[in-house]
Design a protein around this nucleic acid. Sequence first.
DNA 1: GACTGGCACTCGTTACAGTCGAGTGCCAGG
DNA 2: CCTGGCACTCGACTGTAACGAGTGCCAGTC
Lengths: 340, 340
Amino acid sequence: MGLDDRKLAVLRAIVEDYVSTQEPVGSKALVERHQLGVSPATVRNDMAVLEEEGYIRQPHTSAGRVPTDRGYRLFVDRLSRVKPLSPAERRAIERFLVGAVDLDDVVHRTVRLLAQLTRQVAVVQYPSLARSSVRHLELVPISTTRLMLVMIADTGRVEQRLVELPGPVPADDVTDLRRLINEKLANARLSETPPLVQALVEEAPPELRPTMTTLATVLLETLVERHEERIALAGTANLTRGGLLDFQGSLRPILEALEEEVVLLKLIGETEPSTTRVLIGDENEFDNLRAASVVSTGYGPGTTIVGGLGVLGPTRMDYPGNIATVRAVARYVGELLAQN
Amino acid sequence: MGLDDRKLAVLRAIVEDYVSTQEPVGSKALVERHQLGVSPATVRNDMAVLEEEGYIRQPHTSAGRVPTDRGYRLFVDRLSRVKPLSPAERRAIERFLVGAVDLDDVVHRTVRLLAQLTRQVAVVQYPSLARSSVRHLELVPISTTRLMLVMIADTGRVEQRLVELPGPVPADDVTDLRRLINEKLANARLSETPPLVQALVEEAPPELRPTMTTLATVLLETLVERHEERIALAGTANLTRGGLLDFQGSLRPILEALEEEVVLLKLIGETEPSTTRVLIGDENEFDNLRAASVVSTGYGPGTTIVGGLGVLGPTRMDYPGNIATVRAVARYVGELLAQN
DNA sequence: GACTGGCACTCGTTACAGTCGAGTGCCAGG
DNA sequence: CCTGGCACTCGACTGTAACGAGTGCCAGTC
């Protein structure tokens, strides 16, 4: 039941050794590599208890022990301190993010940086539209019956969509429409736009009404309902590290999951509390990812959160290190966004 | 030297069998599954010749034969007809592409469609900026010293970038700048803009000169020099089909290559002639992709080419089928673009 | 009561030998 | 030029044995 300090120390040692060597760890090796101050036999007794409690298990009868998902969970919650970043890592982060010229650039650099530092698969969600505000809406005439609708959000995101108008609209009307739309929607949070868009249609002068109705439909569809979220991914090649031992030999399910934006969003997205989240093994809801762990956190300018980012790797990963890196990168990105 | 018809038929049979079974094919199995009208012994003699000429090889002394890259090449060039698409495939293509609302949407659907139909990794290049023309350039004030520059190309691509101005610029000046820029650049091919941009600066009224200079720099940088190309990727999970036999056991180099946009662009990009291109094994220039083949072609509205698309897979792939699919998808996408 | 050394036991790994069979190359004959 | 026959090669598979890392248990010690 109660795990005394030494048993916890044994668990910690097992996790650390297994993470670094990738091999089941036995009692003898443990006492040699850690100053536990007791004999292998004692450690074996402790291990037996840990196994009974479900924190570790034996792959084969005559093999050493390996942490279970539950063991990693205990390790993360109670046995590890977040590793401070090395100066080299700090420098890498700073160097990597200077010179980013636009949001795309920031996101791409960030995701590559994360992948490189953690040597895992990195995922970065673009600033969520739902948490952005409208900075400006632009209407660009393409032909007499076609407009390009461009929305610029305060987070730097730019969304566009082609609008097929019900009939020809003269240039002056476009100017009027642009003005009306911006007056109503500028600085509004996107999540709060639906009633405003509704009002736009109702308040529009009669001659602009049909066009405005079309625009309103597209606005709601594109900006609120539709694929409003975007994701950047990097470092998939890191999945092949550790031979085929991680992920029980098949990358297939992992790669499939990584192709589904919805899955990634669920994993790293809705980070409601601003704290770092760790999902270990089957704690996540996707069968394909039962052999994987995810470390994620929210980011945004100042204390607000506009999106999530994180890394995905084998359950056998360096949690303290990855947590530290993910947090640090999120903080830097937040600062970068705050400057704009 | 000269390969008579029967030897070619043998090679064709070997390629087809190997592609479908994934196992080295022996002389006996060959005569059973194909009506060659000769005995296994005769086939063996032919095989000996084919091997001597480098078209096939034996993995082990006591195993059947496997095509070499050179063998596939001959097969593709002279022994195969492009497979007609099945009605089901045609329908899939049509169904998949209706309802695309903007360029992003088209590209994403296309790449997923390709991956699904060919069961390979699919790559689609966004319409190249170099081959696009400017439809409109928009300047959106973000603050008094910041502008968002948005370019809309005739291909539907939209690029934006934040511009830090040398000093505050009143709204009227922005209007003037917008007008000047659009007068000069609208409908210009992007590859031909540099002299025009230069002229813009020289012809700008003195009070707008510094701002215009800044804008010109950003314009050239973003639209012409910088990462002007974009790529969409799908179906990486397909790499794991065929166990670990393809790609000699390690996906690592392939995954690494797929993360490099530059590599992908070289593979499927510059399709100068509008014909379909097939790169087999080490015919491509990247060591990481020596075990892979690429089938690619250009696409664009009408007969012009604005970008490339294709699939990547093991050298042991269904060339006739993939070539047919890639062509068909490219044609459909071209038609779709032509409508806009 | 907690820890330790010793010991028997388990079981995966490795090495080796032997068999099997698919596939080949070669050759003599049609 | 093609064919049937035959000896040969060599990887795949199987079974056996030795090895050793690691364990659980127990009796003894502090």
